[in-house]
Amino acid sequence: MKRQADMRGYLFVGQRHRKRRRYVVGILLFLILLSVVLFSLVFGRTVYSISEVFQVLTGRIVPGASFTISELRLPRTIASVLTGLAFGVAGYVFQTLLKNPLANPDILGVSSGSSCAVVVCILVFHTSQMTRSVVAVCGGLLTVLMLFGLSGQKKAATTRIIVVGIGLQAFYNAVISYFTVTGDQRDLPEALRWLNGSLDGVTIKQLPILAVVVLVGLPLTTYLGQRLCVLKLGDELALSLGVNVNLTKLILLIVTVMMTAMATAVTGPIAFVSFLTGPVTNKIMGENGNNVLAAGMIGALLVVIADLVGQFAFPYRFPVGVVTGLIGAPYLIWQLMLINKRGGLNARA
């Protein structure tokens, strides 16, 4: 009897330990993100002091620094944090829902669906940012519908969903190529820049819609993250534990698709962010527990750092999507090897 109590004590100690560790890591992540954001405001072609940055942020006018920071660097940094949050959360939620580290909006063609819609907007209809965002959301949601519709059956195998997604992606890419070939040469640079995922030329006017969606979506997904943890155990068990499985899945999918689509409408598809965040988050925070917020922060961190690297590490200024692509591609292969070694892609990862 006593022994049993001891055991339970040990168990709780372990649990408390893990919980404390999660909080510590979470706070650390937040602090790192904050300092990187600050760094991205301070650092550039001309380096300003931190006090100057604070002066500008509090609304005082500092000659020179005011324009650079509030017109150029601040929108860019805000945009990268917001898109990073959106892509990170979406990637984590997708791969946890579908129980496969490869299932993320990029590979499933959801981002391609949004991109395709936006490219048509840019090249054919020359629409405003607002319309682009709405159309991107429609494209993303339509793709998710097609994805699950075409995969057939009530409980479609994740691998089948992924292959269907790959097919959809190929189709969308062909459509995108079609419009870039036939489109007006004058609009082409904008479309191509956008397609590579770039933060160049982001203005403060583009951000409010994205900000609203992310700031509503983030708490919502974090709240539902509790249920997501339970869903990991399997639909039946989750149901018996009192989770409304279908509703939770539906809300999570719609919210994350909206976040991805809005972010895509502003910056274009930034490659691999949604793929990279999932495994990294699970590694840092541990696989159990509500990691949604952490995933968002890691995504934001990734985008901000990748953008800094792309701007200043090379003689040529690379768009952020290229940097994340360069990091993400080998990581994808490595991940694939790991998964395969662990017992096939069909296994629950």
């Binding site: 590979i107 790959i166 290229v322 591609a329 292969i333 694939l336 070694k341 096939g344 892609l345």
Partner: peptide, 25 residues
């Protein structure tokens, strides 16, 4: 080849991953 079980879709997934990697490069 690293994996234990090979089903048709495993190969396709690996192929697509490699393909995505090269096209982003």
């Amino acid at each position: 080849a690293i994996g234990h079980q090979v089903n048709p879709l495993t190969l396709i997934l690996s192929g697509t991953a490699v393909s995505i990697m090269f096209s982003s490069l």
